[in-house]
C-alpha cells in the first residue's frame, strides 16, 4: 500500500467550463463558481442576513392575523390571501433583493475599486456573479424555513389559479425584478464616488424600500398619498409586482403594461447606472493597491 507524502501541497482542483460562443460567459461561469465557494465559507453569516428577510415580514403577518375577524377582507385580501402575500414577500425578497451597493461603496472608499475597473471583464458581470452566489447561500436557509412556514400555515395555502399567460408573466417578472433592484442599487453604490459616508444614505434608502416594495404592508393597505408616490418609483417592481401577478387580478392589458413598465425600469436603471459610474470614474482618484 502506498501512502501520500506528508509534504504534498494540496492543489486547487480546476473546474473546466465548456467553451462558449457567448463572449464573457466562460469568465462569468468561473467567477460565479469562485463566488459560490467564497459565499459558502460564510453560510452562517448568510443565516443572520436571512433573518432580516424573514422576521420583519413575519412579525407583520402575525399582527395581521391578530387583526382579522372571521370573514374579513382587508385592502382586498382575505386572511388566506394575506398569509400567501407575506410568504411570497419573504421568498421573493430573499431571492430578488441584491445588495451590490455595500461592496461597491466599500471598495471605492478603500480605493480598491480600480482593480475591478481594470479587469478584462464586464463590471456588471462581476457584481452579478457575487450577488447571485450569495442568493444561492440564502436558498440554503430559505428552503427549510419555507417548509416550516408552509407546515404552519398549511390551512391558508392554495396553488394560485391563474392562466398560463399569468404564469409566463410571473416567470418574466422574476429576473426583471432582480435587475430593476440590481441596477438601482449599483447606482446607489456609485454615490460613494462623491460621498465619503454612504452608510446613512443606504440605511435611508432601505427605509424607503421597506415602504414602497410592500415589505411591511401590501401597497393596497397604504394611504393613497403613499401609493401615489410609489407609482413613480421603481420599488414596486422589485417583487411586489410579481406577487400581484399570482393573485390573478390583473387583466391581460394590465399585465402587458406592468411588464413593459418593469422593462423600462430595467433599461432606465442600467442607463442611469452607466451615467453615474462614468461621471464618478472621471473624478475617482484611487489610492489603494
Amino acid at each position: 500500500m502506498t501512502t501520500a507524502p506528508t509534504n504534498m501541497v494540496a492543489r486547487p482542483v480546476a473546474v473546466e467550463f465548456p467553451r462558449s460562443s457567448f463572449p464573457g460567459t466562460r469568465k462569468f461561469g468561473r467567477l460565479l463558481l469562485a463566488s459560490w465557494q467564497d459565499a459558502l465559507q460564510y453560510r452562517l453569516e448568510g443565516a443572520v442576513w436571512f433573518l432580516y428577510d424573514l422576521l420583519p415580514p413575519m412579525g407583520m403577518l402575525l399582527l395581521w392575523l391578530g387583526a382579522y375577524r372571521p370573514g374579513d377582507t382587508v385592502a382586498g385580501y382575505d386572511v388566506a390571501g394575506m398569509v400567501q402575500y407575506y410568504l411570497g414577500v419573504i421568498a421573493l425578497r430573499t431571492l430578488l433583493n441584491p445588495h451590490p451597493e455595500w461592496d461597491i461603496a466599500e471598495k471605492i472608499a478603500k480605493g480598491t475599486y480600480g482593480q475591478i475597473l481594470l479587469r478584462p471583464m464586464s463590471i456588471v458581470g462581476y457584481h452579478l456573479a457575487g450577488e447571485v452566489a450569495w442568493k444561492v447561500v440564502r436558498l440554503l436557509w430559505l428552503l427549510p424555513s419555507m417548509a416550516i412556514c408552509i407546515a404552519i400555515f398549511w390551512d391558508y395555502l392554495q396553488t394560485p389559479v391563474v392562466s398560463p399567460l399569468h404564469w409566463t408573466a410571473f416567470a418574466v417578472s422574476i429576473p426583471m425584478g432582480y435587475l430593476t433592484a440590481f441596477f438601482l442599487k449599483m447606482t446607489m453604490g456609485y454615490v460613494a464616488f462623491w460621498a465619503t459616508n454612504t452608510e446613512g444614505i443606504f440605511v435611508f434608502m432601505i427605509s424607503l424600500e421597506m415602504v414602497f416594495t410592500g415589505n411591511f404592508l401590501p401597497l393596497q393597505a397604504m394611504p393613497d398619498w403613499v401609493r401615489m408616490i410609489g407609482d413613480w418609483l421603481p420599488y414596486r417592481y422589485f417583487y411586489f409586482f410579481s406577487t400581484q401577478i399570482l393573485r390573478g387580478t390583473f387583466t391581460e392589458a394590465e399585465l402587458a403594461t406592468g411588464i413593459l413598465t418593469q422593462l423600462a425600469w430595467v433599461i432606465g436603471g442600467y442607463i442611469m447606472m452607466r451615467i453615474v459610474r462614468t461621471a464618478g470614474i472621471r473624478r475617482y482618484a484611487a489610492f489603494g493597491g
Partner: peptide
C-alpha cells in the same frame, strides 16, 4: 466557536423586531 461570524451581533435586531407583536395575539 465559529470564529468567522463578523455579523453575529446583527442577529439581535431582526429577532427583537418580533417584540412589536403583542404576545396575547399569538
Amino acid at each position: 466557536w465559529t470564529g468567522r461570524m463578523q455579523n453575529i451581533a446583527a442577529v439581535f435586531e431582526p429577532v427583537v423586531s418580533m417584540a412589536r407583536v403583542p404576545t396575547d395575539v399569538l
